[in-house]
Design a protein around this nucleic acid. Sequence first.
DNA 1: GCGCCGAGGAGTGTATACATAAGTCGGCTA
DNA 2: TAGCCGACTTATGTATACACTCCTCGGCGC
Lengths: 226, 226
Amino acid sequence: MRASDTAYTALRDDILHWVSPPGTVFAEVEQAQRLSISRTPVREAFARLAADGLLVALPGRGLVVSDLSRDTIVELFELRIVLESEAARLVARRRDAQIFLELLEDFRLAPALLERDDNRNEYYALVARLDAAIDKAVGSQFMVSAIRQLRPHLVRARRLARGDSERLLAAAAEHLTIVEAIVDGDAQLAADATAVHLRKSLKNILESVDHSAIAASNSAAAMNHS
Amino acid sequence: MRASDTAYTALRDDILHWVSPPGTVFAEVEQAQRLSISRTPVREAFARLAADGLLVALPGRGLVVSDLSRDTIVELFELRIVLESEAARLVARRRDAQIFLELLEDFRLAPALLERDDNRNEYYALVARLDAAIDKAVGSQFMVSAIRQLRPHLVRARRLARGDSERLLAAAAEHLTIVEAIVDGDAQLAADATAVHLRKSLKNILESVDHSAIAASNSAAAMNHS
DNA sequence: GCGCCGAGGAGTGTATACATAAGTCGGCTA
DNA sequence: TAGCCGACTTATGTATACACTCCTCGGCGC
């Protein structure tokens, strides 16, 4: 594997998993030393991350991990809803793939899967398989690349959501509806079900964000009183 | 200006204006010599152009200017319609800018402007001002960046369209409807009018493409007979 | 004549040295 | 004491040498 890919993947993972939270400043030399490679591939990795919108240039200081405010999350989902609904519509129209029949079976089994918290990662992998299948079936390079552009930001945002099993079960049911609509070739239902799912996901995330913001301000207030 | 920016702009312009048509192969050393800079900034420019989708890597041979087939153009517009309709909707909802009143006046004068063919570039500049105003007013970084991602490809595609004054006049009328809807705050009309405009633009391009394809095959047939 | 194999070459991938710009901190001055 | 000016520091920007990979083309064997 190329050193620039290694650097890109490593830095990207750190950002996505909040090892490097928003506001973290990166410099070329520093990262080159940490990763034991030269500045050149680091530079390339920085450029790619900046193009992804994960890093923004900080004139004269380096590059900083981009912010992920409540408003940003809303904007992210507003666009995601538009894109993924349309993608679901296109996929349902084509209805050309065996893969969705397989996914249908798996999503039917998802509630059973989710009875144990240990299986969460399996469920997330299933969702990733659905995403990949949709990417493959939309048949529009531009649509796929527009959606892919959003994914890293969504991964970052997901960590802000409560992963309570109640929400996960509901999400599984929403996903099932989407896959059913695709298999049936019901384009409008696929689009609407996707929009429903995403709006509910957004709502869930925002509730988590607002809740923890309140908790944070409460604990800050408590500290001031102590 | 940085050498990498110079290289990026120069190469991009060549691609957009068909100086380097689809299929042209670029190599780092060659371009570095041509532009009298070192490989490093050329490399950065290549990376940016590849991220734009204007270049695709050709393993072991260099990078090739990406293809722009009829299907690609259709895909491009399918996504563009979704995105720009939504953008127009958002802008109409916000209705916060003086700029659209100015644009309204200018688009009302557009038919008079278009009476002379010399003024076409002024008209194109006006459309660019509208695009910029919408970019500024949508208020979503993700929406703007998704739309911007498509622009270079649209510039390339535009060259394939007939620029007959009949179509230009019709386009001016369609733009006027869009701006009126934005000024009125009629979000649904703004979205629908944008979709109408873009579908008609697509139709115009496709007719040109198909027509010249027929012409090309005819002349090829004539050459075979000669 | 067809296919495999290897040497050559063209191209990218990486390291590193040097150039340059911008931000910061200290000192000078009013 | 506050503000400005300038050198220093630290960062990025660029050039270039070298390493490595892969494509290509010629020769050899079957």
